[in-house]
Design a binder for these strands. Structure first.
Lengths: 245, 245
DNA sequence: CGCGAGCTTGATGCCGATCAATGCATGTGG
DNA sequence: CCACATGCATTGATCGGCATCAAGCTCGCG
C-alpha cells in the first residue's frame, strides 16, 4: 500500500482566506480582520484532487488539515479484513484531517468524489497561530467538538434507526448543508454512489435503492439516478422523528 | 426536565494533577513539571456523583470539562422521540464534556454508573492556559482527535459488524482500557446493564444476553451476571477481525 | 421473605441482506 | 455511428439475523 504516490499538484498562488467566499462557513468563522490576515499568511497553498484520487490515506503521516474549497469528499475507515465504512461526506468549507492529530498519522482515507480543490493548512503553524489568537483557537476547538457531536448523531442513526429513517435523515442533513452554501433546499445531485450512501448509513446498496424507490412511490421524492428532488420535506422530517409511531 | 438540580457537592481541597496517579492516562500526559504545576492551579475542585446521577445533561450550559478520577460513566444522546443511544463509557483518566465546546451547551447526558469522582476543569481557564503552554495545547488537541477516531471505530462497528463481532470488540476494548489502568486483562465486572451495552452496540438487550451465553458455550468467556472472565482472548480477537470468514 | 430490577431463554416474525437478473447511462474502439 | 463493455442502479425472490413478545429465573435489598 501507499506504493506509488501520484504527483501532488499544489498551486501556490494567493488564495486569501480574508477574501474567500467560504469564510463564513470555514475555519475563519468569527475571526477579526487582523486574525484573518494572519490566516492568509499560513494558508498559502491549494491542492487539486481529481475525482477518485485520495487526498490522504490511513497511515499517511499527518502534516496538515485541509479545507474543502470546491468539490466533494468522502472519508472511510477500514478494518483489517477489508470491510470499510464511510465516516462522512465533506463539502465546501468543511475540514478534513482532524483524525490525524491524535496519532500523527491519518486514520481514514479521504477520497474526492468529484474534481476538487482544498486549502492546505499546515498543522504546526495552525497550532502556533492559535496560541496567539484566541478567536482562532476557539474556532478550532469548536470545529473539533462539533465533529464529535456529529459523530454521536451518526451513532444514534446507526444504532437505533431503521432504513427509511436513516435515508431520510441523510437527505435532510445533506440538503441543509447545501442550502447553507446557497444551493437549492429541494433539488440536489448526489455525488456518491448507492453503495457509498449505504456504507455511511450501515445499509446495503440494494436497500438504499429500494428505499429511494419507496420514497418516490410515497410522493416524498423524485428520483432519477443521482438527481433528487425533495417533494415533501415535512414528510421526510416526520420519518426521522419517528412520528410515524 | 432539568427540574430540581441535586445539590452539587464539590470538594475544594488540594488534588494536584502533578501527584495524581492518573497523570499518565489523563490530560497531563507528556507535560513538563512546570506545566503540571500550572494545571494544578486550575484544576482546583473535584465533584462527587453518586450512582445513577448525572454529571451534566444535554442542554446544560457548558462550563467545564471533567476528568474521571474514580468511578464509571456513560454518555447518551437522545432523539426527540425518546430513543436514545449510549455514545460511550468513560473510566478513570478519561475526559467528559468535549461535546459541549461546539455550542456552549452539552449535547449528551453523562450518567454515573457507580459512585464516582471527577476533577473539574474550567474550560475558559484551560483554553487560556493552553495558549501559554504548547504541550498542554497539543495534548488537548490529541485528546479531541482521538475521540473523533474512537467515534469512527464505533461507526464501523455499528455499520458493518454483526452482533457477535460487536460484543467481542466491546469486551476487548474494555479490558484493554482496564489493563492500562492496572486491572486484570482477563477478569472484569461490568458496570453497565445488558440494555446499556445493547444501546451502545446497536443491539437489544436480549441479543446481548444471548451472545454472552453463546460465547460461554463456545468457551470464549465465563459469564456470571456482570462478572466476566475472558477464557480465550485470541478467539474473541478473531471474531472481531472477521477471520471466521 | 418477598419484591423488583435485571438477566436468561424460548418461540415467532420481520427487516434488511443476499443472490440473481435486468435496465440504463457513459465511454471506447472498430 | 454503431457495437459492445463497463459501472451503477433497479427490481425480484429468498434467506437469515436480530427484534419482538413472552415466560421464568437470579440476586440484592428493604
Amino acid at each position: 500500500m501507499n506504493s506509488t504516490m501520484p504527483p501532488i499538484r499544489t498551486e501556490p498562488f494567493k488564495v486569501a482566506c480574508s477574501s474567500c467566499n467560504l469564510r463564513e462557513l470555514c475555519l475563519p468563522v468569527g475571526l477579526s480582520r487582523n486574525d484573518l490576515e494572519q490566516l492568509d499568511t499560513m494558508v498559502a497553498t491549494r491542492r487539486s484532487v481529481v475525482r477518485g484520487d485520495t487526498l490522504f490515506r490511513a497511515g499517511d503521516a499527518f502534516q496538515s488539515l485541509y479545507a474543502v474549497r470546491t468539490g466533494f469528499f468522502k472519508t472511510c475507515v477500514s478494518a483489517e479484513d477489508g470491510r470499510d465504512q464511510v465516516t462522512g461526506f465533506q463539502m465546501a468549507g468543511e475540514l478534513l484531517g482532524l483524525d490525524g492529530i491524535g496519532s500523527d498519522r491519518h486514520t481514514v482515507d479521504a477520497v474526492a468524489l468529484e474534481d476538487s480543490q482544498v486549502c492546505v493548512i499546515p498543522y504546526a503553524q495552525l497550532e502556533e497561530l492559535s496560541r496567539e489568537f484566541s478567536d482562532l483557537q476557539r474556532q478550532l476547538h469548536k470545529i473539533m467538538s462539533r465533529e464529535i457531536v456529529r459523530d454521536h448523531g451518526v451513532m444514534l442513526l446507526l444504532g437505533s434507526m431503521r432504513a427509511e429513517e436513516r435515508l431520510a435523515a441523510f437527505l435532510l442533513n445533506l440538503t441543509q448543508r447545501l442550502q447553507a452554501r446557497g444551493f437549492s433546499a429541494s433539488s440536489l445531485i448526489l455525488r456518491m454512489t448507492r453503495e457509498e450512501i449505504g456504507s455511511y448509513l450501515g445499509l446495503k446498496l440494494e436497500t438504499v435503492s429500494r428505499t429511494f424507490s419507496k420514497f418516490q412511490e410515497e410522493g416524498l421524492l423524485e428520483v432519477k439516478q443521482r438527481q433528487i428532488r425533495i417533494v415533501d420535506q415535512d414528510g421526510l422530517q416526520k420519518l426521522v422523528n419517528g412520528a410515524a409511531c
